[in-house]
């Protein structure tokens, strides 16, 4: 059964704030922290992520989906967040929910602490994520009759932050996204889209879901965690 719970996440300046987490928790041995994609891709895949957690529950795995500060139901302003802060939040959430493993989807993989046993589903680098958001902004500007250039926006964003496709991103977030890459180690299991079949749901213009893909991802994670 899914329950909403709270946890305390770090904020800039050493403060903390209460954030929500969705949990499927029966106090079992196998506990998985789930990191969804970032920004627009998160919205596109939320349903699918929760569907996967439901199947993991049936497979005997407890799972936890925390709101990072500035995301989803969080009251913290997104423009004050950075990848560094989110990485700290992920480390805290791992401890708080006593998770041994992580499932990170797309840009979620950018937040995984080194050395944590993790499944990376279609891990994304920061740069193309930023590029797509910059492009969404220049296309929307052109539609509105304004001419904006990606390069000029980026220069501005590195100094002052930028609102991209409705997401207010601070200067630190933009600079960190430009350079961010998932840290892949011997404890990382990369899951490619072809292993799940179907088409990548974060690309969809309209959010969708695909039970067969959720089933396939659950099988891969369960066999990695339970050794079955």
């Amino acid at each position: 059964m899914a329950i909403y719970d709270t946890w305390r996440a770090p904020l800039p300046g050493g403060k903390r704030a209460e954030e929500i987490a969705l949990r499927f928790d029966r106090g079992r041995e196998h506990r998985l922290l789930v990191l969804p994609p970032l920004f627009d891709e998160h919205n596109k895949t939320r349903h699918q992520t929760v569907e996967t957690m439901r199947k993991l529950d049936a497979a005997g795995i407890d799972s936890f989906l925390p709101d990072l500060p500035g995301c989803n139901e969080s009251l913290a302003p997104l423009e004050n967040q950075s990848l560094t802060l989110w990485r700290e939040a992920v480390s805290d959430a791992l401890m708080h929910f006593r998770c041994s493993h992580l499932l990170a989807i797309r840009g979620g993989a950018l937040l995984v602490p080194q050395g944590t046993p993790a499944f990376f589903y279609a891990p994304a680098q920061g740069k193309p994520l930023l590029r797509a958001m910059l492009r969404a902004r220049t296309i929307a500007a052109r539609e509105a009759g304004r001419d904006e250039k990606t390069e000029a926006l980026l220069v501005q964003g590195r100094e002052d932050g930028l609102e991209l496709a409705g997401w207010p991103l601070g200067a630190t977030m933009i600079r960190e996204l430009e350079a961010a890459e998932p840290v892949i180690g011997p404890e990382t299991r990369i899951v490619e889209q072809v292993e799940l079949g179907g088409s990548p749901l974060w690309l969809r213009a309209e959010p969708g879901d695909d039970p067969q893909q959720a089933e396939a991802l659950t099988r891969i994670v369960a066999s990695g965690m339970l050794g079955s």
Binding site: P128, R131, A132, A136, I139, R142, T150, A165, L203, A205
Partner: peptide
């Protein structure tokens, strides 16, 4: 097919077709 979906489409074209799409191309 809103601006975010088109942005995703173009970024995916760059990736899968191994091309670079500039602002002025769009």
């Amino acid at each position: 097919l809103d601006s975010m979906a088109v942005a995703g489409l173009l970024t995916e074209m760059e990736d899968r077709l191994d091309i670079v799409i500039e602002d002025e191309d769009v």
